[in-house]
């Protein structure tokens, strides 16, 4: 490595991408360390994909620069590309080829040596659970399988960094959960730095150990998921108590940071409600329980003072607009 003293695998310095009227990425600086799972979280059009494209040397910044694995994205683009695997927002494997053929072609493109090539392909297929479908043409794959094939492809050359651009966009809930499972497995098995973009809070929460919230090309918050959420005082648990229920015991629970009484309901600010509700219910008798977690929208609203306008599922429009611009 060129820069052994630094533990940071990715260093972004004042990265800016300006289109005619729009600043897609605005003077962004960021460091991402070895083995981090870093999430770039933001609404569509926030500049997430543009950041990935610049780090992957597909797009030149207007100003500023970055190094990936010690290589400058402007001076050493081919070495940067050798160090990274990229899973794009829209699956980009060839439909007419089989899963195996797609992987083989990419192994060749990445210069994976012949003596390890087949082993690497089998391992990648195994990792994403596609071994049995490897001889099928990709057009016969489901959306989730296509994404998983992309991940296998991104790993075929043992990259240092894997970029996942909206890995579950457009997937149905069960495929999304399967995808999360595979990504978590990946984090466990491979010593890999992962950078993923998403506009799903729960996704970032579940997968990442650090999150940068990005809006209008700027990072507006940077922290662990837990601390970001605690900015909002954690989850809200809404209890309808039975008549004679005594709430004193709740005051001593560590997981509860705030107790309010509103309209006959008890509102608790709870850290990690999913896990702590059973504990809470041991101390009070209730008629109903309702828990809500802070969403990206809540965090975003708090940070920017405006809600995210949820666009139609896709990011496609974002892509389309970028496409049109060139």
């Amino acid at each position: 490595m060129v820069n052994p003293s630094k533990n940071q695998l990715i260093q972004i310095r004042n990265l800016t991408k300006r289109y005619e009227k729009l600043i897609a990425v605005d003077n962004l600086s960021l460091e991402i360390g070895q083995s981090e799972v870093f999430g770039l979280l933001g609404p569509n059009g926030a500049g997430k994909t543009t950041v990935i494209h610049m780090l992957a040397t597909l797009l030149n910044p207007t100003s500023g620069s970055a190094t990936v694995n010690g290589f400058d994205i402007l001076e050493d683009p081919e070495k940067v590309r050798s160090s990274i695997g990229v899973v794009f927002q829209v699956p980009s494997s060839d439909d007419l080829l089989t899963g195996y053929e797609n992987l083989k072609i990419h192994a060749l493109l990445y210069g994976v040596k012949p003596d390890v090539r087949e082993k690497r392909i089998s391992a990648a297929l195994e990792l994403v659970g596609l071994t049995e479908r490897k001889e099928d043409q990709v057009k016969k794959y489901s959306g989730g399988m296509r994404r998983r094939l992309e991940i296998a492809r991104g790993l075929i050359h043992n990259p240092k960094v894997l970029f996942l651009d909206e890995p579950t966009l457009g997937l149905d809930p069960s495929s999304r959960e399967t995808m999360w499972k595979y990504i978590q497995q990946l984090v466990k098995q491979e010593k890999l730095t992962i950078i993923l973009t998403t506009h799903y809070m729960e996704e970032a929460d579940m997968l990442c150990n650090r999150i940068g919230i990005i809006d209008k090309g700027k990072i507006i918050a940077l922290d662990t998921p837990a601390r970001l959420k605690s900015m909002l005082g954690g989850d809200i648990v809404k209890l309808k108590l039975k008549q004679d229920s005594n709430t004193d015991a709740l005051k001593n629970l560590e997981c509860i940071s705030k107790i309010e009484s509103v309209d006959g309901y008890l509102l608790l600010s709870v850290d990690d409600a999913k896990r702590n509700i059973p504990e809470i219910l041991k101390h009070v008798e209730v008629e109903s329980v309702e828990a809500t977690s802070p969403t990206l929208n809540d965090v975003f609203l708090k940070l920017t003072g405006r809600p995210i306008k949820e666009q139609a599922e896709g990011g496609f429009m974002e892509r389309y607009v970028q496409y049109d611009k060139h």
Binding site: A56, T57, L58, E78, K79, R81, S82, I84, V86, F88, V90, P91, S92, S93, D94, D95, H106, L109, Y110, G111, R153
Partner: peptide
């Protein structure tokens, strides 16, 4: 259009 080209261009291929 189908992004295959992008996946080739992100590989270390001139």
């Amino acid at each position: 259009k189908f992004d295959f080209l992008k996946s080739v261009m992100v590989a270390p291929v001139s």
